[in-house]
Amino acid sequence: MENFAQVVAALKQGEVIGYPTEAVFGVGCDPDNQQAVEKLLEIKQRPVEKGLILIAANYEQLLPYIDESQLTVEQKATVMATWPGPVTWVMPTKANVPAFLTGQFTTIAVRVSDHPLVQRLCLEFGKPITSTSANLTGQEPGRTAQEVEQQLGHCLAAILQGETGGRTNPSEIRDARNGNIFRQG
């Protein structure tokens, strides 16, 4: 049974939620709510310096966070050719994007997902959400709502019931400026 309204309400209240992505479940929150991001980092036991991925329903949702003026037409076309899809791109950020999202970097990792539940979630929420694998740092990421419940259920406000996209590996992460691969997909 899908619990969509509960999950969207939790996001709007600054809570951390679990949700299925292309390969694994993710945990996410409102990227503009510093307390929510700090709660997510605490749950994950993840250092703020690492930065976070933003996942969106469409490119327009990412525009408040990325500085596309630092990318060439060709670089942007390369990115757009992979979206929506399982490729996360590291892109230059706008000056006002807070360090609690970017960590030690002047870039941010972003993805336009092709997962129907992620798309619906971001559209209903009205903006991107953070996306990091649903696991404690160093543990295996959850691939079902039940696995996420077992590992993180006591910390999350809600877990969106649904299936992952069936991919084996988490998204590939590439640099939009030079094409370098940070994580193989």
Rank of each mutant, 00 (worst) to 15 (best):
E22N: 01
G26M: 03
I129F: 04
M1I: 13
K76M: 15
V87Y: 08
D114M: 06
F100T: 10
V37Y: 02
I159C: 09
Q151K: 09
Q184E: 13
Q184G: 07
Y59A: 14
P84V: 04
K76I: 11
K12C: 07
A10C: 04
A5W: 05
P86F: 00
E42K: 15
A134G: 12
V24R: 06
C155L: 09
I173E: 03
L101D: 01
V79W: 02
Q35W: 13
A10V: 04
F100C: 06
T102R: 13
K39L: 13
A99M: 10
K76Q: 15
Q161E: 12
Y19P: 08
G28N: 01
G138T: 06
A23Y: 05
I55Q: 01
Q6H: 11
L160E: 01
I159L: 05
D30T: 04
Y19L: 08
F25K: 02
V37M: 10
N33M: 05
A145E: 10
A99K: 14
G103V: 04
L101H: 01
I55T: 06
K94F: 09
Q161A: 12
A157S: 06
G14N: 13
A23P: 03
P170T: 11
V37T: 11
P86L: 00
P31V: 02
E172G: 09
E147S: 11
T144C: 09
N3I: 02
V148N: 09
E42G: 15
Y19N: 12
P170L: 06
I173K: 03
A109L: 10
V110Y: 00
L121S: 03
R177F: 00
G166W: 08
G103Y: 01
H154Q: 14
V87N: 07
V112W: 00
P64V: 06
G142E: 01
Q45A: 13
E38S: 11
T168V: 15
T78L: 05
E15L: 13
A10K: 00
N33T: 03
G14R: 08
A56V: 04
